[in-house]
Each structure stands twice: as C-alpha cells, then as structure tokens.
Write a protein that binds this DNA or RNA. Sequence first.
DNA 1: AAAAGCGTTTAACCAAATGTTAACATCTCT
DNA 2: AGAGATGTTAACATTTGGTTAAACGCTTTT
Lengths: 238, 238
Amino acid sequence: METVDKKILLVEDDPNFGTVLKDYLMMNDFDVVHAKNGMEGFEKFKKDNYDLCILDVMMPYKDGFTLAKEIREKNEEVPIIFLTAKAMKEDVLRGYKVGADDYLNKPFDSEVLLMKIKAIIQRKGADSLADSKEFEFQIGNFHLNSKLRFLTLNDKEPIKLSPKENELLRLLALHLNDLMPRELALTKIWRDDNYFTSRSMDVYIAKLRKYLKSDENVEIVNIHGEGFRLLVKDQVDF
Amino acid sequence: METVDKKILLVEDDPNFGTVLKDYLMMNDFDVVHAKNGMEGFEKFKKDNYDLCILDVMMPYKDGFTLAKEIREKNEEVPIIFLTAKAMKEDVLRGYKVGADDYLNKPFDSEVLLMKIKAIIQRKGADSLADSKEFEFQIGNFHLNSKLRFLTLNDKEPIKLSPKENELLRLLALHLNDLMPRELALTKIWRDDNYFTSRSMDVYIAKLRKYLKSDENVEIVNIHGEGFRLLVKDQVDF
DNA sequence: AAAAGCGTTTAACCAAATGTTAACATCTCT
DNA sequence: AGAGATGTTAACATTTGGTTAAACGCTTTT
C-alpha cells in the first residue's frame, strides 16, 4: 500500500533541534516539510496535504496550540503530535482539548517518536485513501497505474487496461482486502444498477482475474450477494 | 446505534490502584471491567467486546505485553493503553511494537489519562464512522467480521457465513451473554414472524451451533419460548 | 465505403451459494 | 403423558455468480 512516503509537517522554531529532527525523520523515509514558526507552519499546511503534524508548543508569534486549533478548523482528521519542553499538566490537557493525538516531552528518545509516528499513521491510514485522487496502487507484486491504465508485474511487459477494466480494478484497489460492494462499482462506473450492468461487471471481474492470475497471492474473491474483495495474501508490514 | 457507555477492560494486579482507577473511570461514565491479572484479562476480553483496553505492564503470570499480543491476534482494532511504573525505553518500544495506542507512566495524572482515553476513543470512532465499526465481534476465541461474513477461530481458516447466518450471529453477538429474543431476529432478519420463518431460524441456529462447536466455551442456549442466548463461559479464574 | 480493431454489452448456459420447506426426533413445561 | 417448542437433516427451489461467445457500436484503416 505504501506507494508514496508519508508527508510530515514539522513546525519547530529551534533551528538546531528542528534540523536534526527533520534529518532523522527523512532518514526514516518520511517526507518532511520544516516550518520555523507557527505562521509559516499554517501557510505550509494550507498548501499541501499532510499525513501528520508535529508541532512545537513554545514558538514565537504563534504557539503550537493556536496553530493546532487553526489546523483542526481546516482538517479534523490529520494527526497532531505536540512537542514541549515543559510538562505542565495544564498544557497537556489543553493539547488534548484541541485534538492532539499524542504528546512528547523534550528531550525525548527519537526511536520512541518514530514508533509513535508509525503507530499513529498506521491507525489513521486505512481509509483516508477512500476518496483521494490516488492513481497508483501496489497490489501484491502488481503495480497499477490507473492514470496510464497500466498493470505491471515486476519487469514484465505492462498489461494495457481498458477504461472499464481500469476503473474496476482501481475501485477494488481502493478497498484492498476489504469489501468493494457491487452496488458501488455499478453506480460509480456503470452509472446504473440493473441486471445487465451487473452481468457486465461480472464479465469484467473475469477479465481482471485472468490478468491477476500470474501472481497467486493476489485474488478477487466474491462475497455472495455483497460484492468483491481484492485479496493480497502473505502481507508483510514494516 | 444506541449511545451506550464505552466499555473499558482494565487489567491491573494492584488491587488498591486498580479499584481506585476503576471507580474513577466509572464516575466518568465508562463501563469498566476490572481483571486482576493477564490470564483473567484475556478471558474477560474474549467474553465481551471492548472499546478500549488499559493494561498494566508488570503483572504476575502474564505481563501486559504478552496480553496485548494475544489481544491483537484476536482483534486488530481495539485501542490499547499501557500503564507502567518504570519508564524503560525498551519497554516503550516493545509496547508500540505490539500495537499500543499510548503509554503512561505511573504515577500519572488521572485527568491526563481521561483526556487520552477520550482522544483515542474519539479518534477510533471518527475513523470508523464511514463504514460503522459495528461489525467486528469477539465471541470467546472466535472473531466475527460481519462485514466480510467471516468467522475466525484462532489461526484456523475462516468460516464463510451466508448472509442469514451472519446476520443471526451478529444479532446474537450484539446481545452477548444476554437474551436475544426470537421475535427480534424474525422481524429484523426475516422481516416476518410466522411459523415458517421461525422454523427457518431454528435451522440457522443449528448451523451456527455446528460452527461454534469447535470452541466448547461458546454455546447458543435456548430459552424456551423466549429466544436464544449466545453464551461464553469462562475457563480459568484465579 | 467497406473492413478491421477495439471496448463494451447481451445472451446463453452452467455451477455454486443460499434459503425454504418438510419430515422426523427430541426436549420442556404443565 | 401430551402439546407445543426446538433440534436436525435432507430434498428442493431460488438466487447469484462464472464463463464463453456472439452481437453491437464506435473509430480507425484500407
């Protein structure tokens, strides 16, 4: 699933600490944008989509809480972790009130931060893709580029997909290992849910199965009366 | 779904601390089940469905990490918070590795814990609102995914359930250890309460019993003239 | 303009999954 | 004991899905 590195917004005014932390996170395969204060942090936040925000509490011009509140107004979902030097109880409570996901006291262990980041992103990650404009998917050993309508297995010659094949596989990939309801595909792709469109969809499922057959760990399974499930066996986590 | 209190499993061997914490949480409108050790905690976990687990790390017989791992095998979703007296880095990392959602060092501020609990439960709730997380159940050693219509026992091959089997088991699980009235299933699932639907339901009860037979601690008992009760017995208690 | 290529739909047939009913055995309550 | 409720199994009916191939419509090629 992890086609693209997770994007982190780091807002930290201490240039030394900020740079070290940024480098450390980048070494661990995160895509980090570093803002030097609350203002800049908010500007950067508005310009891009982040998977996580790490905010220093004590900052000039605009403190971490205020920034968090502004971020929450724009986006209720994005996880927020606070960094703070002082561990005042009031601060901690205030942090959770503005919707923090976690809280870390400086100095902290970088490995611990990393674990927290992974834990938090992993939990959030699952369904945030649901409506995004993602067009690249990893499906077992396959790679689907649904913009170019290519399905590639390792270094084999890419399979060209027809528009319907592509849309259907993309919908399945968006619900990877989960149910993709029949009705969803019919309304989204065929724009009509009746006997014939449903039969047509089955024909396309058969076509996709034929393509996917060359990786035995990938399978489209039917859930009778409900829909289909694009299943990837033998999954490895990071 | 009804607005029922959130159910918390608290596993803490220190009787004083455990009781105080339980009372505090209950005062704050949580439904708390208190287990005195890891074994008991796991038994309790299997017998019911919880919104959150709070596990002490240092416990006799079975420590919090081991317990967390067992819980994770049964349920990948339920949030876990660790309590620990010592704040060893290795422990913290180990906790996150087994899928912790948070970590607290004793002594901690109860208000902070409350905030964390609320943040975590809220976060989970938001994530799963899209497809309403009301479809995963723990039934003894079984795990029911009523969205994918799977009934899984430990690492065995999942049993595929038919729509009616699934709906019926789900209704029973919603009333775990409690009466599930005949009439409820008939009106909700069969949409008609007559002689034939009632016989049909009995056929499905028989099918479910056959599936559930492989865990002798799980049983569907009849309450003559009233309905059925999905019962999870305890195996160990000390 | 006819032929060929392509994506899609329709049709037909078969296989699998699901649900209902009937028949009979057993249990529970009075 | 006896009536009604429940348990179990199997036959049967129905619904849904899988597959193949032909038909259709559209665009490009000859």
